[in-house]
Simulated scan of single mutants.
Amino acid sequence: MPTIDPALPAVEAEGLSKRYGRTLAVDRLDLRIEPGEVFGFLGPNGAGKSTTLRMLLGLARPTAGRARVFGDPAEDVRAAHRHLAHVPADVALWPNLTGAEALELLANLGPGTDLGYRDELVERFDLRLDKPCRAYSTGNRQKVALVAAFATRAPLLVLDEPTSGLDPLMGREFQRCVVEAAARGQAVLLSSHVLAEVEAVCDRVGILRAGRLVQVAGLAELRRLRRHEFHLSFAGPVPAGLAAVPGVADVEVLGEGRVVLTLAGEPAPLLRAVAGDDVVQLSVREPSLEEIFLGYYGEAAR
């Protein structure tokens, strides 16, 4: 089983860049992830997240800069992959193998597997191993990959949209496994579109935009990004002063007693502000991650 060296960063990238023709997919990215840290990787579609992960995994050669995994060059795939386990966004398994056979093969390919922990994870993820992989749903293929990755106890887990296809109950089980991995000293690099998932497990988040890592922040900043859109209808005119309510922004009066606004943080101040007015309808929508980033970086009007 691989040994974690706490003196080395799990991931270290310096000036990492990737160009495809005239397109600069990743631009001078600097990144450092420590052992035991859960790092969330966020950004709109096309921001360069997948390209960055491919370079960190040694699957794409950088145009400039370098990346290391526990001190080994990422381009040296054999050396770097001794330290990591990877779960891709779209898991493909061997169609004629059963789930049990697929797990056994993955264990032989990886950096070592804790078989007892693997059996525990099979139970926790409610995974049937006697079925052929061709009969698995997307969610069950994802479970196989997650069980295999967590059971390796690899010092670094690279998880790319790992809960796609999982139901909410299994999503919570995944979060438990991430927290347990970090408690054992493993580093986790989590690329996800599920903002609540990242918020639940990550210590820091890196925000990628147009190929550049524009911000690395803790959870407080992540929570500031997380806004909800409120649609309110009143029997009378829209009350004045909504823009002054803590956390409220982007107030747009639609006429006929209707208003739409965004709210960061707890809804209690807003609800108190409208408690004396005749609210006839209220709905709440959580914007997509794409919308959040477009608004956050002032791109919505472009």
Rank of each mutant, 00 (worst) to 15 (best):
Q142R: 03
L222R: 09
N45C: 03
V144P: 02
Q186H: 09
F41M: 07
V91R: 01
D203H: 14
L242P: 03
Y297I: 09
N140F: 00
F41D: 02
P9E: 05
A74T: 04
S50V: 10
P155Y: 08
A182D: 00
N108Y: 11
E104T: 14
V201L: 02
A135D: 15
Q281P: 05
P95C: 06
A183C: 02
V179Y: 00
C177R: 01
R141T: 01
L222D: 11
E120S: 13
R302A: 15
F125R: 00
A85T: 02
P35H: 01
N108E: 15
F230T: 05
D119C: 06
R184P: 05
A47Y: 07
Q215A: 14
F70V: 02
L261N: 08
A154F: 12
R223K: 13
Q281F: 12
L8V: 07
S50Y: 09
R141V: 07
P35W: 02
V91P: 04
E173V: 15
A181G: 03
A89W: 01
R118M: 14
E37D: 00
C177L: 10
L24W: 13
G206Y: 04
L208T: 06
R124L: 11
A47Q: 08
L222A: 12
T51I: 13
G165L: 10
V38C: 03
H83T: 11
F39R: 04
V178A: 01
L225S: 02
R78G: 13
E197H: 06
P237Y: 05
Y297N: 01
E252V: 15
L115I: 12
T63G: 12
S288F: 06
A67D: 05
R212S: 15
L127P: 01
Q281G: 14
A148P: 07
V280S: 10
G36E: 01
V38T: 09
E173T: 15
L53H: 07
L208M: 14
C202A: 15
A74Y: 03
G43R: 01
R68W: 12
G247E: 03
N96P: 09
F174E: 04
G46M: 03
R209H: 15
R118A: 08
A235D: 15
R22K: 13
E286D: 11
A183R: 12
G206A: 14
V248S: 01
E37I: 00
L42N: 05
A268F: 09
A13S: 12
G36R: 00
